[in-house]
Design a protein around this nucleic acid. Structure first.
Ligand code: FES
Ligand code: FES
Lengths: 141, 141
DNA sequence: ATGATACTTGACTATTTTAGTCAGGTTTAT
DNA sequence: ATAAACCTGACTAAAATAGTCAAGTATCAT
């Protein structure tokens, strides 16, 4: 049960962006350097974030990305959703996967997995980008 | 962020075991048939559960496995721990992993990952095997 | 105008992890 | 004795991850 780099990078990059985008757009190159994330990979990630309207792009020299919503309105859920970092506790989408009784009956632990999934998603629904930036600034003072 | 089959199987198998072990040891073959899990894979899993003293083995004909503790005392944490289903929200064990600033400083989202990890582990610490069996029986009545 | 900066897109690939399989044992009730 | 069942370690196919690479297009500063 682990968080992938894609999800972690997306959050790191957005925290970085939220801290610096007040005046000018922030270039991925800067984020790449500050956060130590591959530029090419960041481009993939931001392409997704843009499609889900979490960020806006500004092309050309001095261009970069800007948040498309208030940091308070961007929840962790939105970020993870945009980059396909889904929480999956079950594996029974395709019919007759091993260990999954299919769609008609549920396996003996099924309720548990549903609860767990909800428990984790609750966390993601609560936290906003604003919370993260604040939390991070506090720690640095 | 997903749960692996190994973790899911371990829980399913133990729920099955907890429901049937009152009289005789339960053979992996039976669990395999009832839960639709590969016998060979179950053997790997139970080998780990035995090493962590969650189950006890009875060899020979009519043998099988029995719980080694009260169902109430077996927490989800113990099960996942035994089969190496760890919750990992960070990736910064080896020094200078990309995106991880190493051991000295923490990345901008680090507190969040720690919180998330705790949040998930809290869930695992609460739930006991007894809870699962009860929950499952209720649903079947 | 023109170069540099930076976004855009899609395909490609190496590595790691997962989810098993397989082969060959050992123990013990009957 | 023999079959049921545990036990062990090695092996492997498939999937997911974490990128890289190549070839653009748009815009600004000068
Ligand atoms: S996880 Fe698939 S049936 Fe329960
Ligand atoms: S996740 Fe590695 S430094 Fe924060």
């Amino acid at each position: 049960m682990k968080l992938t780099s894609k999800g972690r990078y997306a959050v790191m990059a957005l925290v970085d962006l939220a801290r610096f985008d007040s005046i000018n757009p922030v270039s991925l190159r800067d984020i790449s350097l500050r956060q130590g994330i591959s530029l090419d990979y960041l481009e993939q990630i931001f392409s997704k974030l843009r499609k889900k309207e979490i960020v806006q792009s500004v092309r050309g020299t001095q261009g970069g990305y800007v948040l498309n919503k208030k940091a308070r309105e961007i929840k962790l859920t939105n970020i993870f959703d945009a980059v396909d970092e889904k929480v999956k506790t079950v594996q029974c989408k395709k019919e007759s996967k091993k260990g999954c009784t299919g769609k008609l009956t549920k396996c003996v632990a099924h309720n548990l997995w549903d609860e767990l999934e909800k428990h984790i998603n609750d966390f993601f629904n609560e936290k906003s980008l604003e919370d993260l930036v604040k939390n991070n600034n506090e720690k640095r003072i």
